[in-house]
Design a protein around this nucleic acid. Structure first.
Length: 246
DNA sequence: GCGACAG
DNA sequence: ATCTTGTCGC
């Protein structure tokens, strides 16, 4: 099973990113949109109880029908730090991916790939660790500024780095609806990533892969929390504070 | 130094 | 991410 190296602090985390960035493959076009399998991954947290749940849902890229799905539950391994999201999300995501029966094909994750302060976001990190083509589709802008794309579905504007390089795109997936932010993670071209994103979002702003993974990991988290409560103490059924906590 | 900042 | 009721609309 593939694993991620969990850093002891933020400095070490950044060092790991600088090191692994060298292994990102950017000269492949990636699987053609609408072909093969596409897998969405997402994670839900209960920091209070130190529980994290991840889900991986495999869709037929042509029909968007669910082919396979899996979940994994674990402990929170790293705090949320902008720019270091991978260390928080990836451990459990890898476990969910390993639990799949079918091949993932192209992976779509929440967050960024190249559109990252060190050009090595979550999507890039997941790609390097798995060796699979990965793209990132984020719901919110991060470090790069952009012009508002045209109002129609399919229109986009570039996310530009300081050196003028296009590290991602603000892509409108629905008419008159806020765009999503697409960037390449590993073994995929930006054009391919946007084509996949559009095909995966025929009815909603967010790709079907993320929507499916989102509902599944939330359910897995809820069940994990319930199981933990049940194991810890059936004495808390009426109120909040138990005798032991006062 | 201060603010902003994927999930 | 997560806390959260009702509400507008297909």
């Amino acid at each position: 099973m593939t694993t991620i190296r969990t850093p002891a602090d933020e400095a070490e985390a950044r060092a790991i990113q600088d090191e692994l960035r060298e292994r990102v493959v950017l000269d492949e076009a990636g699987p053609e949109a609408g072909t093969g399998l596409v897998t969405g991954v997402d994670v839900a947290y209960d920091d209070e109880r130190d529980i994290v749940a991840a889900a991986a849902v495999v869709l037929d890229a042509a029909t968007l029908a669910v082919v396979d799905e899996a979940t994994a539950v674990g402990r929170v391994a790293f705090p949320y730090v902008p720019g270091l999201l991978a260390f928080r999300e990836i451990p459990t995501v890898l476990a969910a991916l390993d639990a799949l029966t079918s091949d993932p094909g192209l992976i779509v994750c929440d967050g960024y790939g190249r559109a990252h302060p060190r050009r090595f976001g979550l999507a890039s990190h997941l790609g390097v660790l798995t060796g699979l083509p990965v793209i990132g589709v984020a719901k919110n802008p991060f470090t790069f500024t952009y012009e508002q794309p045209g109002t129609r579905r399919g229109e986009f504007t570039p996310l530009l780095a300081d050196d003028g390089e296009e590290v991602g795109r603000a892509l409108r997936t629905q008419d008159g609806v806020k765009p999503v932010f697409v960037s390449v993670g590993h073994r995929t071209a930006l054009d391919t990533a946007c084509a996949h994103t559009l095909r995966l979002a025929p009815d909603f702003r967010v790709p079907e892969t993320t929507r499916r993974a989102d509902t599944l990991c939330r359910r897995a988290l809820r069940e994990a929390v319930e199981a933990a409560e049940r194991a810890a103490g059936p004495e808390d059924t009426r109120g909040n504070r138990s005798g032991a906590e006062r």
